[in-house]
Computed example of a mutant assay.
Amino acid sequence: MKRVYVNEKWCLGCHLCEYNCAYANSGKDDMVKALKNVKINPRIQIEEKDGIAFAVQCRHCEEPLCVKGCITGALSVKDGVIEVDKDKCVGCFTCILSCPYGAIMPDDDGHAIQKCELCVKNANGQPACVAGCPNKAIVFEER
Rank of each mutant, 00 (worst) to 15 (best):
residue 12 L to N: 08
residue 14 C to W: 00
residue 15 H to P: 08
residue 15 H to N: 10
residue 15 H to G: 07
residue 15 H to D: 03
residue 17 C to H: 13
residue 18 E to S: 04
residue 18 E to Q: 15
residue 19 Y to A: 12
residue 20 N to V: 13
residue 20 N to F: 13
residue 21 C to N: 13
residue 23 Y to F: 15
residue 24 A to I: 03
residue 25 N to P: 12
residue 25 N to M: 06
residue 26 S to L: 15
residue 27 G to R: 13
residue 28 K to T: 00
residue 28 K to L: 14
residue 29 D to Q: 09
residue 30 D to L: 07
residue 31 M to E: 15
residue 31 M to P: 04
residue 31 M to R: 08
residue 32 V to Q: 06
residue 33 K to Y: 08
residue 33 K to V: 00
residue 33 K to C: 04
residue 34 A to F: 09
residue 34 A to R: 06
residue 35 L to E: 07
residue 35 L to G: 14
residue 38 V to L: 15
residue 38 V to F: 02
residue 38 V to Q: 11
residue 39 K to V: 06
residue 40 I to F: 10
residue 41 N to H: 10
residue 42 P to C: 12
residue 42 P to E: 03
residue 42 P to F: 15
residue 43 R to F: 09
residue 44 I to H: 10
residue 44 I to R: 10
residue 46 I to Q: 14
residue 47 E to R: 13
residue 48 E to Y: 11
residue 48 E to C: 09
residue 48 E to T: 14
residue 50 D to I: 08
residue 50 D to E: 14
residue 51 G to Q: 12
residue 51 G to C: 02
residue 52 I to Y: 15
residue 52 I to R: 14
residue 54 F to S: 09
residue 55 A to L: 15
residue 56 V to D: 11
residue 56 V to L: 01
residue 57 Q to G: 02
residue 58 C to M: 10
residue 59 R to T: 11
residue 59 R to P: 08
residue 59 R to S: 10
residue 59 R to E: 01
residue 59 R to C: 06
residue 61 C to D: 11
residue 62 E to A: 12
residue 62 E to G: 14
residue 62 E to I: 03
residue 63 E to V: 14
residue 63 E to H: 06
residue 63 E to M: 12
residue 64 P to E: 09
residue 64 P to S: 09
residue 64 P to C: 07
residue 64 P to A: 04
residue 65 L to A: 14
residue 65 L to W: 00
residue 66 C to K: 09
residue 67 V to N: 07
residue 70 C to I: 04
residue 71 I to W: 05
residue 71 I to T: 01
residue 72 T to Q: 03
residue 72 T to H: 10
residue 73 G to I: 09
residue 73 G to V: 11
residue 74 A to N: 00
residue 74 A to H: 10
residue 75 L to D: 10
residue 76 S to N: 13
residue 77 V to G: 03
residue 77 V to M: 15
residue 77 V to H: 04
residue 78 K to V: 15
residue 78 K to L: 12
residue 79 D to W: 05
residue 79 D to F: 06
residue 80 G to L: 08
residue 83 E to K: 00
residue 84 V to H: 09
residue 87 D to V: 01
residue 87 D to C: 02
residue 87 D to K: 01
residue 89 C to L: 11
residue 90 V to E: 03
residue 90 V to L: 11
residue 90 V to A: 12
residue 90 V to P: 08
residue 91 G to Y: 02
residue 91 G to N: 06
residue 93 F to A: 01
residue 93 F to W: 06
residue 93 F to K: 07
residue 95 C to V: 13
residue 96 I to R: 02
residue 98 S to E: 08
residue 99 C to D: 04
residue 99 C to V: 05
residue 99 C to R: 07
residue 100 P to V: 02
residue 101 Y to P: 11
residue 101 Y to G: 07
residue 102 G to Q: 13
residue 103 A to C: 05
residue 104 I to K: 12
residue 104 I to R: 09
residue 105 M to V: 08
residue 106 P to E: 14
residue 106 P to V: 07
residue 108 D to N: 12
residue 108 D to E: 13
residue 108 D to R: 04
residue 110 G to Y: 04
residue 110 G to W: 01
